[in-house]
Each structure stands twice: as structure tokens, then as C-alpha cells.
Design a protein around this nucleic acid. Structure first.
Lengths: 341, 341
DNA sequence: CTGAAAGCGCTTACAG
DNA sequence: CTGAAAGCGCTTACAG
């Protein structure tokens, strides 16, 4: 019935005593084995094994001022795009013995700052951040703390931050070009809220610019909303009330586009026969919905992997470089060619 | 051109000096504000703000022997089900000032153990684990380290671990029952690899038991494969080669089921007119695919929330309780009623 | 190659 | 309500 007193984990001290050497030697045997005589090292290893010793993280972090931890603050794991990018990011870091601290901000920059602070307080050696626009306060914090960070899901020239992403404006232009090429002139857009989200903002800009410089073509309206199926469907219904109806709807991501398609199905509206729809991201959803989405493929996995490599390099050498990845238009069935009707 | 000397982060000491109090008082002002005079506390808060102080994690962890960190080891973030559950888990923990360390094991128990060790070495105060079956070595490690953990995505009676999940066997039986109720007698199943995955194993068991005790009905075959669209499609084609073809295919999750439907579409096979298909999980995919999936709704969000609460209680009081959540059959269009043909 | 010792930045009895 | 001080478990110049 009696509880044995809780046996505390063995410490370096315990190992040192059992191995008849100093704690310094144990520490070296663990962290830089080549600085220790082979014989000593082997003895130490045996003792460590026998005692089941593992270093105390707090002690180690405090003494060495590193945590072997990287933090990521993403909008939400609930979007497959971020989740799959993060998955790869984690795998690569894990191979390099780094652990991943994950936080989410729900596309809110205040929350982002708060989470960043939290991860930094947690000792994160580096940070993965999504998108490039954030309040000065956040940027200042990052600078003052001198925390290395890589910015993913976007890319900017002439910027001394480290990017692993793509040009959202350009990518959005490319899908708008496809739409125009197929003879659409009345176009609408459903996008994510742009205010605190530079990816959404740039996608809107890309579409706008592209359409504006095309004769006859007009961007009827841009509806900003949540990145959910429901919101996409609701925005679609709003668009249906336009005096001049769009023949094509460019969506800010695949979830929104899938929402439009599902709602259209419920309403008995044929896509793309009556209205065309395009997506953005190319997540699994895009291939599964009927009609399958013509969309912009964002290299999520490659981005996660690249971001991890940049991070590792930053952590090891204090410097790295930026990577601009390419997006690609994926032609499927949701965009009709008006010339062929 | 010259670099300013690296300004180190402010420490408790710095704050104490600036606020004209001892470090002990600062520490209290941060960790147990009510133990400090209001006036003092306010002054301290101002100084903290002004200096941009955040506690050093290593120091804190070392002194208090807690890390305020919880670890989660999940199969993969790439499956929306885990990602969305994890999202909620993280949100709830974050509100309680806990940070989340995330690792993935790709449904492999060796990798799981390795990741568990890594997170524990990182100082995780508690662990979230998926599923109940794991090698003795893992269980022993968890016990020796005396690490509190909660098991999600499954539930077992008469088990002293803490669960926040559901009965996979029962849930699988319930969907099989629906299938049988509609007059199907030649049934096949496509499931995830069961060997290292008790959820998959139990789902297979549930379907088997249910069908076996029904006269005339037979489970033609069970194909185990990866949880991907492609694999689901491939398994479907294999099933098409059966001498007696199934009229219904029960899938181990929605991704597999969506894979079947997409492949069927490509093959010109009408679902559910020619073959019925059911899913499991009820992720977004299930509502977007055509025909929409009749599936088992798994309460992902509730599970994430519940798991977080159990975790928090475990961390605060050293004990908690298990929760068995309910699943529900969602009727959509992928399951035909043979009686009505 | 190894050891003695300082020090990393906190928390927390213990006194007052 | 506050402070002086010990101590948490490591790492790392510095000597030898």
C-alpha cells in the first residue's frame, strides 16, 4: 500500500559519480565525444545506459543558451495546406534532432505576436512564420530578440528576410490570365480577409492588375470572407444577385472554390457550364470535388522542406538564403472555355 | 558598418534593478500576482513592458522542474482529422499557457517511441498519444519516466489510462449495420494497415463481427493499404476483379472512400448505383465528393478539446478521468438501399 | 585528456 | 508583503 518515494531522474552528477569522472567529462562524452578518450567514453556510455540517464532539458538550455527547439506560428492546422507543409517541416527538423513547437494564430496578427512571444519565451532557437506582413511591433520584437526566422508561403524581392515561398501576386495573375484567355470578361473574386493576410491581399492584387489591363474585362466585385466551405457558398449566392452576373469566379483558395461548387450543386447550377470557378493551393479537395478544380498548385511539401533547410542553415551558420518556388496552373474541369461554347 | 555588441535579452535581474525590488518579487509578480502588493505589481508590470522582458525558459524549467510544455505524437498532420483535432487541442492548451510540441510517427510504433523520447527529453510535462496499442518498451518507458499522458482516438473500458476517444470497434459495427440494413450481402472492406494501428484493427474487427453474425452476408475480403486517395483507388480496382463482386465497400476512413469514388468516376462506374461506398471520420472531403459520403462522424474537435482538458487536469491535480465520446452515422448519398431498387 | 569551478536565469522555502 | 540566498542540472572557459 505504501508508496515508494518518487525516484528522481538521475543527473549528470549521478553519472559522474558512478563512472568515477567529473561532470565535465560526462558532458563532453555526450556532446563532443571526440574530446574524450575512447576508454573513458565507453565507460561513461555504459553508465548512462545502466542508469537510464537523459539530460535535463532546462539545465542544458540554461547553460548552453540553446533549446534545440524550433517554433512555428501558422494561421491554422485545419487547412490541409498548412498542415501538410508543417508535416514535412517537422520531419526534416526531426532528422536534425530539432523539436517543433506549434502554435496557431487564426489569421490574426495580434494573436500571432502573442504566440511568437510565447514560443520565444519557450526558448525556440528559430521561428517559422507564414506571410510577410505584420505589425511593426512584431517585427521589432523579432529584431530586438534577434531571433532567426524564415518566412514561408510568400516571397519578396529586395528584402533581407529569409523566404521559402512564392509570389502570390504573380501566381494570382497567372490564374486570372487563364480565365481571361478563355474569353471571360465578367469576373468576380471570392478571397480571404485581406487586412491581416498578405497572401490574400496579394492574390487579390494579382487578379485585379491582370484584369484591369485587359480591355473589356471587368472585375465585378471582390468578396472577402472566411476560408470555409460555408462562407464560399454564401459568397457565391451573394454574387448571384449581381445585376450583371459573373461568368467566372476566381477563388482565393481551394476551400472557398469547393464551397462554391458544393453550393452550386445544391442550387442546381451547373459548373462550369453556367459559371466557371477556379481555386488556389491544389489541396486534395481540389481533385476530389466534381468538377475537379482548375487551380494554382502551391508547392506545399517543397516549401516545408525548403523552409526547414533554410532554418537549419540559419541555426548552424547564422546565415542562409531565400528561395522563390514556382507555382503552376493545374487544368482540370471547373473552368470553361467560352470560345468553344 | 560596425556591429553593435549583441544586446542580450533582459533578465529577471535587470527587471529587479529597474523596479527597485528583488528578483523574488518579480518572479512572484509574474507567477502569483496575488502574493504581491498591487502597487508593486503594477510597477513591476510597467518595467517588464518597458524592457520587453520575457522569462528565460531554461532557467524557469530548471528551477521549477516544469516546462509548461505538452507534447503530442500523432501519425501525421497530413490527415485533416488529426490536424483539426490537434488544432483545438493546441488552442485549449494555449489558453492555459501551455505550449505544444508536435511530432509525427507515420503510423510506425518504433518512430513513435523515438519521438516520445525526444519530447520527454525536451521536458514535456505531459503527452498526447493516438491509439492504445504500443510495444511494451514504449509503455515501460512512459511508466518509468512517470509521464502523464492521454490517449485519444480510441477508448477502452477497464483500463487505467486516460482516454479521450471513442470505441472504434463499436463505431465500425454501426456502419456495417447500416450497410446490412440496406440489403447488401456481398461486402468488402478497404482499411488502413492494421498491424501497428489499433484503430484500423478495431474497425476491421467491428465490421467483421457484425457481418459474421448476419445470415447470408459475407465479408468477401479486407484489403489493408495506405491511407491515401491513390491507394484507395487501387484497392478498389483490385476488388473489381473478385469472382463475386461486392455491392458495398466499407472503407476504413474517408480518404480511402474518396479515393474509391474518384477512381470509380474515372472508370465510369456509378456510385452508389453500381456499388455502394462508406467512409469513416467525416472530414471535409466527405461532404465535397460526389456522391457525398455516408460515413461515421468522429467527434474530432470535441476529442481535441476533451483531450486538452484531461491533460490540464492531469497536470494540475495528478489525476483525471476518461471520456468515451459518441460517434454518429451520417447519411449522405454513397450508400444505396438495395430494397428500393 | 581531464577536473574544479563559475555561471546560465530562474523559483522558493525561510526569515523578517 | 518583501528580500537574501540556496539550488535546480547543465556547459564551458581555464588550468593543468
Amino acid at each position: 500500500m505504501d508508496r515508494l518515494p518518487q525516484k528522481a531522474s538521475p543527473t549528470l552528477e549521478d553519472v559522474a559519480r558512478a563512472a568515477h569522472v567529473s561532470t565535465a567529462t560526462i558532458s563532453r562524452a555526450i556532446n563532443s565525444p571526440d574530446k574524450v578518450a575512447t576508454e573513458t567514453r565507453e565507460r561513461v556510455e555504459q553508465v548512462i545506459e545502466r542508469l537510464g540517464y537523459t539530460p535535463n532539458f532546462g539545465g542544458r538550455a540554461l547553460a548552453s543558451n540553446r533549446s534545440n527547439t524550433v517554433g512555428a506560428v501558422i494561421p491554422t492546422m485545419a487547412n490541409a495546406m498548412f498542415a501538410s507543409g508543417l508535416q514535412v517541416f517537422q520531419e526534416v527538423l526531426s532528422e536534425a534532432s530539432y523539436n517543433l513547437l506549434v502554435a496557431s494564430c487564426g489569421y490574426n496578427t495580434d494573436t500571432e505576436l502573442q504566440q511568437i512571444k510565447s514560443l520565444v519565451a519557450q526558448g525556440a532557437d528559430g521561428l517559422l512564420l507564414i506571410g510577410s506582413a505584420r505589425p511593426d511591433e512584431t517585427t521589432r520584437f523579432l529584431e530586438v530578440r534577434n531571433i532567426p526566422y524564415v518566412v514561408a508561403w510568400c516571397y519578396q524581392h529586395n528584402d533581407d528576410r529569409y523566404f521559402a515561398g512564392f509570389d502570390n501576386t504573380k501566381a494570382a495573375s497567372s490564374i486570372a490570365t487563364e480565365v481571361l484567355k478563355r474569353g471571360h470578361v465578367h469576373i468576380a473574386m471570392i478571397a480571404g480577409f485581406a487586412e491581416q493576410n498578405d497572401r490574400s491581399k496579394n492574390r487579390i492584387t494579382g487578379v485585379k492588375q491582370c484584369i484591369e489591363k485587359t480591355d473589356n474585362a471587368t472585375l465585378l466585385n471582390v468578396i472577402e470572407t472566411d476560408y470555409t466551405l460555408e462562407a464560399g457558398g454564401d459568397a457565391f449566392e451573394k454574387l448571384l444577385q449581381n445585376s450583371t452576373k459573373p461568368t467566372a469566379i476566381i477563388c482565393g483558395n481551394d476551400v472557398l472554390a469547393a464551397g462554391v461548387i458544393v453550393r452550386a450543386r445544391q442550387l442546381g447550377i451547373k459548373i462550369p457550364d453556367e459559371i466557371s470557378v477556379t481555386g488556389f493551393d491544389d489541396i486534395t479537395l481540389a481533385t476530389v470535388v466534381t468538377p475537379a478544380l482548375t487551380t494554382v498548385r502551391v508547392p506545399q511539401l517543397e516549401m516545408g522542406k525548403t523552409a526547414a533547410r533554410v532554418m537549419l542553415e540559419l541555426l548552424n551558420s547564422g546565415t542562409s538564403q531565400s528561395f522563390e518556388l514556382e507555382t503552376e496552373i493545374i487544368q482540370r474541369e471547373s473552368l470553361a472555355d467560352l470560345h468553344q461554347v
